[in-house]
């Protein structure tokens, strides 16, 4: 097996691990005294981790040997979206049990929920257009423009966590610094005078998985 495929397989397994662990802990009745809160926080954490992981691909590809990792970007992005959906579903179903009035009030009045909800909304079109059909339909340029939404979504995701925390901001700051580095690299390359023609990503030319 090619080493690229091994890495992809490992990433697949890693992305399932948080969910498997939650299911095992649930079976063992080991989800803390407040299981719903724990599920919410855990799925939120992993959504953020995987989303940031997906944002490491573009900088990584500045190194020629890692150009192939573009194949991992969509996969990581969709896993991140998967955990975002779990996070959101747990909030709506388990936490508020479809009490739409309270959910609406939460989104309107709780700033951390407002930005979290915004991040969720921004990720929806990204997930919907992650398929080959959409890439072809939208053409590379417009597809790229739409998927630029991942940046505000990631920022909102980190702010969502930062605003949730009461006092100890260490953990949200780790995410904030990681995101700042990932965005900083992009800005650096944007500002740097181009030495050769930019290597445009043409999604429709990618070989199939």
């Amino acid at each position: 097996m090619k080493y690229q495929n091994i890495i992809r397989l490992i990433l697949h397994l890693l992305c399932w691990l948080p969910l498997v662990r939650l299911i095992i802990d649930w079976q063992r009745d080991d989800l803390t005294a407040n299981p719903i809160e724990f599920l919410t926080h855990s799925t939120g954490t992993w959504a953020l981790v995987i989303l940031l992981a997906s944002l490491t691909i573009t900088p990584l590809r500045k190194i020629r040997a890692f150009n192939w990792t573009i194949k991992l970007r969509k996969m990581l992005g969709l896993y991140a979206y998967f955990y975002v959906c779990l996070h959101f579903a747990i909030y709506i179903w388990l936490d508020h049990f479809f009490d739409w009035a309270r959910i609406g009030e939460d989104i309107a009045k709780r700033p951390y929920i407002t930005v979290g909800f915004a991040a969720f909304l921004m990720l929806v079109p990204l997930a919907l257009t992650s398929n080959k059909f959409s890439i072809r339909k939208l053409t590379g340029k417009r597809w790229q423009q739409l998927h630029w939404l991942v940046y505000p979504a990631a920022i909102c995701g980190v702010v969502h966590y930062y605003w949730l925390v009461k006092a100890d901001i260490t953990e949200p700051m780790i995410y904030a610094v990681a995101l700042a580095v990932l965005l900083g690299i992009r800005i650096f390359y944007k500002l740097k005078p181009q030495q050769r023609s930019p290597r445009e990503y043409k999604p429709d030319l990618q070989p199939s998985d």
């Binding site: 662990r21 926080h41 855990s42 954490t45 953020l48 490491t56 953990e171 780790i174 610094v177 990681a178």
Partner: peptide, 12 residues
């Protein structure tokens, strides 16, 4: 590599 894992593990 993601740089954010430390935080995630502490939670778990």
């Amino acid at each position: 590599a993601t740089g954010a894992l430390l935080a995630a593990c502490k939670k778990s």
